[in-house]
Simulated assay, not measured.
Amino acid sequence: MFSRPSFIDDDAIARAVADHWLPAITGVEHLPWGFGAHHWRARGAGGEALFVTLDQLAPRHTAESLEAAYAGAAALAAAGLAVVCAPLPAASGRFTVGVGPGVLSVTPWLDGRSPTEAEAREPRHLAEVVAALAALHQTAPPEGLPRWRPRVGPGFADELRARTAAAWTSGPLAEEARAAIAARGAAIGRWTARYLELGDVARSRQDSWVPTHGEPHHANQVVVAGGLRLVDWESLALAPRERDYASLLGTAAGAALAPDPAMVELFALDWRLSEIAEYARWFAAPHTGNDDDHVALQGLHEELSDGP
């Protein structure tokens, strides 16, 4: 996230990191990176650095699902999957620690950088991403890995219609968000019906599901001296392989993968509807109109404008 969290300060993060991962910590630095989780860099007295992530819980996660995802990523790395930037175990042996309304995890600090969107679509880089995802999808799934499941139910469109029937007064962007959602109620209903239909098809084929990252786009890729690393494994789950193909579609690399069109459509809708659900919660709740709020509003308009 670009803005600092209002519910926890840097000192609390530093204490948690010191208690569970890095006793000789010298300080933490908040990083205005990404969208959805909060991040810090923690430094140790010996010059080491850790990348610290605070994931919030409901409605997207539970403490158990995040622990299972991060433990699964560590198991994949231990099995030899070099593309995984794996979480480090805490002193307890677990990979997450409860802190306030979320859970904390850490990974080694990577000396590299994420490609831009343009760089991520260059043929050489795409080939590396395809190879990395193929290796992931061919790896035996660790025990206890979460399974993909639909992120909205059959009543989603009706619930949104009811919630957007009256004005929102929760913040400066609330009414614009409410009106945008209300205007697309019929489309959201169509998208939801199709999504649930395709979800049933996917679940009928669970014997072919593979470990999937969930969001292997350019912002979750880091290029280091040893090659590509994928970060942010909080969405790791068993699922159809097409769950990982969004960033590859429309490229020669994507066409060579011969994805199932129905599963491509499923995961396009999975992203769209889960984003709309999250933004509806976001703007119905108190907000101030900060940078994160404006990025979220732009994201909401993008998801609502795509498709018939």
Rank of each mutant, 00 (worst) to 15 (best):
Pro308His: 06
Ala120Lys: 11
Ala140Met: 08
Glu143Phe: 07
Gly80His: 04
Leu66Thr: 11
Thr53Leu: 03
Pro89Phe: 05
Val129Met: 01
Asp11Tyr: 06
Ala167Trp: 08
Ala16Val: 07
Arg194Gly: 05
Ala162Phe: 02
Asp9Leu: 03
Met263Ile: 09
Thr169Gly: 09
Ala78Asn: 01
Gln138Glu: 14
Leu31Arg: 14
Gly98Cys: 06
Gly214Trp: 00
Thr251Ala: 11
Val84Lys: 05
Pro141Gln: 01
Glu176Ser: 11
Arg205Lys: 12
Ala284Asn: 14
Glu176Tyr: 06
Gly189Cys: 09
Val129Gly: 02
Gln56Gly: 09
Val52Leu: 02
Asp270His: 12
Thr116Asp: 10
Arg229Glu: 04
Gly189Phe: 14
Phe2Ala: 07
Thr288Val: 15
Tyr195Arg: 12
Ala37Trp: 08
Val103Ile: 04
Arg184Tyr: 04
Pro5Ser: 11
Asp292Arg: 08
Glu302Tyr: 13
Leu196Asp: 12
Trp271Pro: 00
Glu302Gly: 11
Ala296Tyr: 13
Ala246Thr: 02
Pro240Trp: 07
Leu54Asp: 06
Ala157Val: 07
Glu303Pro: 07
Gly185Tyr: 11
Arg124Ala: 15
Asp111Leu: 01
Leu145Ala: 04
Ala165Thr: 06
Thr53Met: 05
Arg161Trp: 04
Ala262Leu: 15
Val28Arg: 03
Leu133Ser: 00
Asp260Ile: 06
Ala77Gln: 01
